[in-house]
Simulated scan of single mutants.
Amino acid sequence: MSSLTRPGGRTARVRDAVLRATGDLLAESGFAALDLAEVARHAGVGRTTVYRRWGTPTGLIADVLVAMADESVPRARTGSIADDLRANARLVRSTLADVRQGRLFKAVVVAGACDDRAADALHGFYAARIDEWAPCVDEAIGRGQLPDGTDARQVIAAVSAPLYYALLQSGQPLTEALADQAAGAALAAAQAGAFAAR
């Protein structure tokens, strides 16, 4: 575990303040306007601290995504694949529909399109969230609710994909009904064997 992620102490307090400031500035002004000196000012820490520990705007974004993955809500364990997928979709929806979080996600997606380090961090964030939720699909296979060979990671990705599309492309309102529809569509496809190994 690096000094940046060690719980407790001044290092952790500085990291929390800097990442909060980074998230606020990303949500407010986007990736193109992210400036390390401005982050330091908003966080109430020295500029040299930010430059030394994070180095670049993409270094900050990478650490923001690590923190977001670490702090994400654990998956549901309802015993029903339909309820688990619905819970996953509603969690994604509530995050993306939040004014600050929605803008933050847009900013980090833009960063990922511009910079390989930010892209790697974004991929790591999504992988961590899928890893958290994929066991509900594996458990459903074990209960006979889904076909053998169903790719759990693909099912979870299919749940959230329409919600990210709405946020980033279509502008469709991120309603709870849309979340439930996304979960239902992913479940129906999984039950039909669409995500089973051929």
Rank of each mutant, 00 (worst) to 15 (best):
M1K: 12
S3A: 15
T5G: 10
P7E: 14
G8D: 14
A12T: 11
L19Y: 10
R20Q: 14
R20P: 08
A21D: 05
D24Y: 07
D24I: 09
F31Q: 02
A32R: 13
D35Q: 07
E38A: 15
V39P: 05
V39M: 09
A40R: 05
H42E: 12
G46R: 08
G46C: 03
R47C: 06
R47L: 09
V50M: 06
Y51W: 11
G55M: 05
G55V: 06
P57S: 06
I61D: 07
L65E: 05
D70S: 15
V73P: 06
V73E: 15
P74G: 11
P74D: 09
R75I: 02
R75V: 08
R77Y: 08
R77A: 14
S80C: 11
A82G: 11
D83F: 04
D83H: 07
A87W: 02
A87H: 04
N88S: 09
A89S: 07
R93T: 13
L96D: 08
L96R: 02
V99T: 13
Q101A: 15
K106F: 04
K106Q: 13
V109N: 05
D115Y: 03
G124R: 01
G124D: 11
Y126D: 12
W133D: 00
D138G: 02
G142I: 05
G144Y: 03
Q145G: 00
L146V: 04
P147V: 00
D151T: 00
I156K: 01
A158Y: 02
A161M: 04
L163P: 00
Y164D: 03
Y165W: 09
A166K: 00
L168Y: 01
S170M: 01
S170E: 02
L178E: 00
A179E: 06
D180V: 08
A183Y: 09
A188E: 13
A190K: 12
A194I: 11
R198P: 15
